[in-house]
Write a protein that binds this DNA or RNA. Sequence first.
RNA 1: UCCCCGGUAGCUCAAUCGGCAGAGCGGGUGGCUGUUAACCACUAGGUUCGCGGUUCAAGUCCGUGCCGGGGAGCCA
Length: 466
Amino acid sequence: MQRIRVKDILSSDDGRVAGPDGALLLKGWVRTRRDAKGFSFLEVNDGSCLGNVQVLVDHSPQLLPHLERLNTGAACAVEGQLVASPAAGQKWEVRASALTVYGEADAETYPLQKKRHSDEFLRTIAHLRPRTNKYGAMLRVRSEMALAVHSFFQSRGFAHIHAPILTGSDCEGAGEMFRVSNLEPEKAAQLSPADREAAEFFGRPANLTVSGQLEAEMLALALGDVYTFGPTFRAENSNTPKHAAEFWMVEPEMAFADLAEDMDLAEALVCSLVRHALTHCAEDLALFGNFVDKTLLSTLNGILDQPFLRLPHAEAIRVLQASGRSFEFPVHAGSDLQTEHERFLCEEHFKRPVIVYDYPKEIKAFYMRLNDDQATVAAMDLLVPRIGELVGGSQREERLDVLQARMAEVGLPSEPYWWYLDSRRYGSAPHAGFGLGFERLLMLVTGIANIRDVIPFPRTPRNLEF
RNA sequence: UCCCCGGUAGCUCAAUCGGCAGAGCGGGUGGCUGUUAACCACUAGGUUCGCGGUUCAAGUCCGUGCCGGGGAGCCA
């Protein structure tokens, strides 16, 4: 007999998921057992959804020896009859006719109890926390959101491209990179720099990528509209709830697009993903709304309510100055927006997602397109309540001479970027793109406040246990 | 990396002014009931994060290290 998923049992209207005589096979993990005289209730969960199936087990000679081994956490198979439940609380239940114990879970040492645990504790058992309601829900939403990302771009004719993870370039000079080497550290330390470089696998220093953007630009200038969706790495010693050393980024890049179209795409993407979560993850989102963030559903619906607000950086500065608020970091023309400023703008002042654009060139990366005012660049940041910066993007500088001047201005050598510059030598075209932090999206959609809890096995400073 | 807060039973926490180490949940045992994070009774369970110091006496005070959390910076 083929096993039936809990999700299919619970969502069945007429019980036809079972065989003609109601027979079915169920496999999963015991969430709880309630013993009565002569029989027991087992709550079995298989991860397919939030809910459990209640299994009624008689204390018969065939079943009892197996039942006694089925504590919270044990893995089992249940053969039985699907019947309408006579008691309130569930529509269906299964009357067991045979039990198989795959793996016991010793009650005295199994860390997960039938009660809520703190996030901090669950992080110390990252290998077991997916078996809790909250982390199971998060992982299902994470999977659903990944599907939604691909659906969004594929339906708009974007090609999914795979940017390299090992890279020889420092991309945008953004942040510390993880160096990758095949050399034994002790031996490498004894070599001269030149000998060491020659001994390296690639014959040159290699790093883990911090962004697929530069490569995506090359492919956008061939395929038109492309996007990457993959892991990126930053060796920054950031100890915050919003940063991880390994995280996934969605990076679309569009040929023949300007900054306004870039902002249009970012807004459409975020709205599409939020809408997808609301419609496809309703049960799991309800759990987050109940136990993680009471305002979650109103926040998500609020995002869809009205268009995002767009304002130039200089205008944002004026709004902050006119607010009458005393900020820890005073604002002045040309200053970067601090976290407190971003939060004020989207959480208090405008009370909706805000896109700030046209930043002073001094505080942005070299590849961003210089505006006609010669002072600002065509960059944009999408700020959302609670998370802050969810998206960062720009129209790219497609003019070779301007790009080279900018690189010289910020002190970047042009030689390592010869291939990047080549794209501006041959068939250069306006183009724009952005990066969306996938984990930050998940924090937005689930209400989970710490990035460590939207990644199954998070990598943060001094944390590589699992 | 900087600032602030914390570390006590498996988990979540309490312990007054420096004076005998406590509860709930979880575990074990027994009971009871078509039960719903079941319920009732009994019971076991401690290097109070490590190291050093002050004191008749330290979970409590001081120094230091480690770990965790919040905020900041960096950014997605």
